[in-house]
Computed example of a mutant assay.
Amino acid sequence: MQNPINISNSNNLAPFLAYFEQKGIEWRKIAAEYDFPEDIEDREYWLSSHQAMAFLGAMVKQTNKNVGFDVGRLITLDQISPELVSEFSGCENLEHALHHLLEMMPTLNNYMVVWVDKIDGKWYLCHRGSYHPSLPGYDQAEWFRTFAFISLCRMFLGHHWEPSSVFMSFPDHLARDVTNTANLDAFRFDHAFGAIEVPLSAGFVPVDKPIDSDWLTVITALVQTYAVLPWFNIQWLASLIGTSSRSLQRQFTEHGCTFRGLRDEARCQVAKRLLKANTSPFETAWRCGYSDLSNFNRAFKGWLGITPAQYQKQTS
């Protein structure tokens, strides 16, 4: 089994296990095959995200049900995590909550990236998992993640709020039989990332925190968080913090560094960590923001002078 570079709290599986129990679906045998603790229903554990996704993928095959959709559309945020409800209860509105979400996500979760972006003139709460969409269970994890974010928005927009538009990053044939049981007019599949449309003011700035006092520290942290996105560039970063790319470039120069240098350093660190954990160069490339393995190999050799495969062999 792959080294658990990315981990998930077993509480995230609690709604699925409750669903299986309610429907009389046997799940323990498959859970045992994926080395889940026998008392996972009663105690909190940290599991490999890869392990949890594979379990859900196996349960889909066994039940022929889209369990991610079935469970996701019924959950509320307090069922996922009462601590998160408490965390966001002090927020005045959705905009405040999203600022708080983006600030806390890098320390809360290490297997997804979350951001807010304007697409075709509309604001979206966006998310991208760190595993390749071809992996078993990926679609189930994204259904659950999407509905979890919808549940967060409902804390501020009302329990019956529905997004007008939703993007999913897996192809529509993986929606399984959902189209026969639910209205999916708002959903679009095979997108570059997952996203739900959210009602925010025109002047909303995704990262709304003072950075002048410790500019380089804050910018470096943002780069380390978002460098793994394939489209990550200086224009995108400037939009995230509500400035122009020219102004941002000037700040990099004044602080004696470059955007490209910080981005490549962040990607290099992620790549080394994954390769040391025996993650394949192909999957490592995807997680570092490269859709093409040859481009990743070329970039990695430029960073360290050797290929990812050679580095992996040296550090294994």
Rank of each mutant, 00 (worst) to 15 (best):
S81N: 15
R128C: 04
S164E: 13
P210C: 14
C268R: 06
L240V: 11
Y138R: 04
P210H: 14
V71K: 10
A148W: 07
L304R: 02
L17P: 02
R43D: 08
Q235W: 03
L229V: 05
Q22V: 02
E83I: 14
C268W: 03
F232D: 04
N66Y: 00
D208A: 12
Y138K: 04
I211H: 09
K118E: 15
N180H: 05
W303A: 12
Q51P: 10
D292Q: 07
D212Q: 13
L102G: 02
H127F: 10
D212G: 11
E103G: 07
A195W: 00
I219N: 01
A182S: 08
M1S: 15
Q269L: 10
L216M: 15
T284S: 13
L98N: 00
E44C: 12
R154F: 02
R267W: 10
T315F: 04
H191L: 10
V60I: 03
N6Y: 15
V270D: 08
I306R: 08
Q140A: 01
Q251S: 12
D70R: 05
A58M: 11
H50Q: 15
L200N: 02
P206Y: 04
L200A: 03
T258R: 06
D208M: 10
K29M: 06
F232S: 03
W286H: 05
A52D: 06
F156Y: 07
D78P: 06
G302I: 13
D177L: 10
N109L: 03
